[in-house]
């Protein structure tokens, strides 16, 4: 049996997954108890859970897609473990690629057959992502004190609100800028055949972004005007799914050259 996907690897993965589930449940329980203590209603906390479940489904599927993308070289289990603890899409792909290149074992699409190479990749992916676990407990308390001080110094509620909103908007702007102007990627095989990933900014990304914003604004307006409480909770996931539906629809309806049009030529990944 392929050592990358044998029962030993599966047991390792299941142990890690069980650990993550217990940890998350422990935090959830602790926060819930504190919520009760400070007078947050059960309805508000339940709504948070429901909204978060709905919000998570699609991005989680995109993470599953990364696991699949890494599977040809690493098998399915290691990417699954790595993306369940600390890992994120871009970092794990980069770490795996660098580790495979360091051992001279080929690329990310070539299956690893040597156990030592596989162990090297495991160590690199693990060590590349473990720093926050050391830095966070040492710094977080002090950082938060600094933030609290800065907020209390600002004192003026208009300014405090504006700065809090500005921090959110700065984060969101990074993704908006990528959707508006990001360069896509493509792969070139040994015969020189180019495969486009269609992941750059173009007609589809802008159409999806605008649809998502517009649908969200309309749904929020309706929810507010007619006081539809359930819609307030579901407006965000509905807008997301609807915008992605529009992306599928445009791909089906428009000629391929228009639907896949990107503003800038893709680079080889």
């Amino acid at each position: 049996m392929d050592f990358r996907e044998d029962s030993f690897m599966l047991i390792l993965a299941l142990a890690v997954i069980a650990f993550v589930l217990v940890q998350s449940a422990a935090f959830l329980l602790k926060a819930w108890k504190q919520g009760k203590r400070i007078g947050l209603s059960s309805a508000t906390m339940k709504n948070t859970v429901i909204q978060s479940v709905l919000f998570t489904i699609t991005p989680a599927l995109a993470i599953v897609a990364t696991v699949i993308a890494l599977a040809p070289a690493l098998g399915i289990i290691l990417p699954w473990i790595r993306l369940s603890v600390i890992g994120n899409i871009s970092q794990e792909t980069a770490a795996a690629t660098a580790a495979i290149e360091a051992t001279g074992a080929g690329g990310i699409t070539v299956p690893i057959t040597d156990k030592t190479t596989f162990a090297t990749v495991m160590w690199v992916m693990t060590l590349a992502s473990s720093l926050p676990l050391i830095v966070l407990p040492l710094t977080l308390k002090r950082l938060q004190r600094g933030v609290k001080k800065a907020v209390s110094k600002a004192a003026n509620p208009v300014l405090t609100d504006a700065l809090a909103a500005a921090a959110f908007i700065g984060l969101i702007a990074a993704f908006i800028a990528k959707a508006l102007a990001g360069v896509g990627t493509c792969a070139v095989d040994a015969d020189g055949v180019i495969t486009y990933n269609y992941d750059g900014a173009g007609l589809l990304s802008v159409a999806t972004l605008i649809s998502s914003v517009v649908i969200m604004l309309i749904l929020s307006k309706i929810a507010e005007k007619h006081n539809v409480n359930w819609l307030k909770n579901f407006a965000m996931p509905i807008s997301m799914f609807a915008a992605m539906g529009i992306a599928i629809l445009l791909t089906q309806l428009l000629p391929e050259s228009i639907a896949h049009f990107e503003f800038r030529p893709p680079v080889v990944s």
Binding site: T58, P59, L61, A62, A65, A165, F168, I169, I172, F175, I176, K178, A179, N197, Y198, D199, L204, S205, V206, T208, L209, I210, S211, S212, V213, V214, I215, M216, L217, S220, A235, M236, P237, S239, M240, F241, A243, M244, G245, A247, I248, L250, T251, A259
Partner: peptide
Amino acid sequence: PAFKQVMPALFGALGASYF
């Protein structure tokens, strides 16, 4: 195409109220 556009869909919906 839906999987490729997760980020614009997610951050469009999230950003709408802030914008």
